[in-house]
Design a protein around this nucleic acid. Sequence first.
DNA 1: CGAGAGGTTGAATAAAGTCAACAAACGTGG
DNA 2: CCACGTTTGTTGACTTTATTCAACCTCTCG
Lengths: 264, 264
Amino acid sequence: MEAGRQRQGRLWSNLKEVCDLLHIPSAVSVTTEELLFQHVQFKTGQRIHTIGQPFDTLYIVNSGFLKTVLIDEFGNEQVLSFPMKGDMLGVDGIHTRHYSSEAVALSDCDLILLPFKKLTALGRVHLELENMMYGVMSRELVREQAMIGMLGALSAEARVARFLVTLADRFAHMGYSAKLFNLRMTRHEIGSYLGLTLETVSRTLSAFNEIGLISVDQRTIGIKDAEALKTLRRLPPSRTRAKQLAAAKSKNEAATPAQLLAAM
Amino acid sequence: MEAGRQRQGRLWSNLKEVCDLLHIPSAVSVTTEELLFQHVQFKTGQRIHTIGQPFDTLYIVNSGFLKTVLIDEFGNEQVLSFPMKGDMLGVDGIHTRHYSSEAVALSDCDLILLPFKKLTALGRVHLELENMMYGVMSRELVREQAMIGMLGALSAEARVARFLVTLADRFAHMGYSAKLFNLRMTRHEIGSYLGLTLETVSRTLSAFNEIGLISVDQRTIGIKDAEALKTLRRLPPSRTRAKQLAAAKSKNEAATPAQLLAAM
DNA sequence: CGAGAGGTTGAATAAAGTCAACAAACGTGG
DNA sequence: CCACGTTTGTTGACTTTATTCAACCTCTCG
C-alpha cells in the first residue's frame, strides 16, 4: 500500500503505483525499476507552478490538498479546482508549453513528478501509459464540463449543496469519512470556485445547518442528509422556513429536513 | 487548399490535411494514401452523438457550425460550446467510453471521422499524431478553464461582450470578417452558454447597440468597437446612459462609445 | 397567408452582491 | 502562557443585478 520508497532522501514511485493512484487499470508486465518517478514535497502556501511559467512536467497528487487558480487582468483569483490525492496537475500547460493556471498547496503536499518528455517517450513503449494520459485528460474535461453546467444553470444553494456532495464523494473515494470532514479551503476560495461571494457561501451553509441538512462548525462539515443535498435545487424562502421551524417548535418537535423541503 | 477529395461518393482527408485543420504543425514525411480519414455530412438539426451513446470516434469540424450540450435531470439543455471549423468533438467520451455530451449541427456540416482505435494505433507510428492529440485536448481544457473563469467572475454584460469578441476572433481565424458576421445560434442558446436568460442577452445586445459598441440586426452583428468590448467589465447604469445620450443629443452630436464608457 | 419560432421590451420580483459591524480562531513574539 | 494583530467566518441592512412574467413584434417557411 506504500506508494513510493525512500532513496537518496527522496521518494520514488514506479509506473504501477502511479496508475493505481490515478485509478487506471494497469497491466504492466515488467515493473521495471528503471521506470521510477520522483516525489517532491511542498509546504502549505507554496506554489507548485505559476501562470506563464514554461511547462515541462505534470504532477500527480500523492497526498495533501491544493487549489488551482486563474488570475485575471486585475489580480483577482478565480479558483478552478481543488486537486487532491489521485488528481493530475499541469495538463493545461501542454498546449502552449506554458502553464495557464497556478497551483498552490492548501496543506503540506507530496506530489509525484512526471516529466512530460519522459512521459511521451515512455508512452510509446508502455501503451497503457498513453491510454492513461488520454483517460485522465478526458476525465478532467468532463469534470470541467460539469462545472460549466453547474455555474451556468444552478442557484447558489444548489451549487453549495453539490460542492459538499462532491467533496464527500471524493473523501469517501480516498477512504476518509463522507459524513464528517474538514474543508481545507476558506469561504472565499469556495465562493470563488462556485462563482459566489464568501458571504453567500457562509449564509448558505448556515441555512443548510438550520434546516438540518448538515452541521457546520467552522471548517468541520457533517453531512446529515446527503440525498437532499444531491437533489436540492432551491431552498424555500426564509419566511416559510421560519414559519415551519416555529410550527415544529410549538409542537415540541425538531423540524425534519423532509418537512422543510416539502414546502418547496 | 481543398481539404479532402471525392472517392466512392464520399470525401476523405489525409493526415496532413487533418493537422492543418487543427492548426498543428505537421512534419509528416510520407503523405501515405493509406492514412485517409472519412468525411460525413450532417444536415441542420441532426445529432452527431448523444449522451450515453458508446464512444468510438472523434470528429473534426471541416465546415459548418454546431453546439454541444449537456442535458440535466429534468431535460434542460446547457450549452457547452459552439464548435466550428478546426474544432474537435467527442473527446469527453474517451474517459468512460460513452459520450457525456450531445452534439447538434446548427448548420449543414462536414465532419471528419477519427476512429479512436485507429487513431491511437497510428499514434505509435506517427508520433506527431500523438502530440496533436495531447495538444488538442490541452487546448480544449484551457478553453473550458477560461469559460469557468468567465462564468464565475464576470457580469452579464462582460460575458456577452467577451462572447462577441471571441466569436469575432474565431471567424477572423477562419478567414471570415471579424467586423460583420452572422450568429448561428438563438438568443436562448447564447444565454444557456453564458449562464444568462435569453432576455438578458437580448437586452445586453440592445444596450451595446444603443451606445455604439456594435450594430445588431437579428442575427447579424457588426463589431464597432472591439477594444471596448474586450475590456468591458460593466456598463454604466441606464439612467446615466440616458442622461449622456440626452446631453449629446441636445448638442446635436452623436454620443461616442468613449464618452459613455468614461462615465464608468 | 397564417402558424410558430425567435426576438424585443417593460414592469415587477427575487436572488445574490455589497458594505459594515462584529466575533471567533490563529499564530507570533514577548 | 498571554496579549496582540491578523485572518477567517457570521450576520444584518441595503442595493444592485438579473430573472420572471407578459405583451407584442417580426421573420421564416410550409
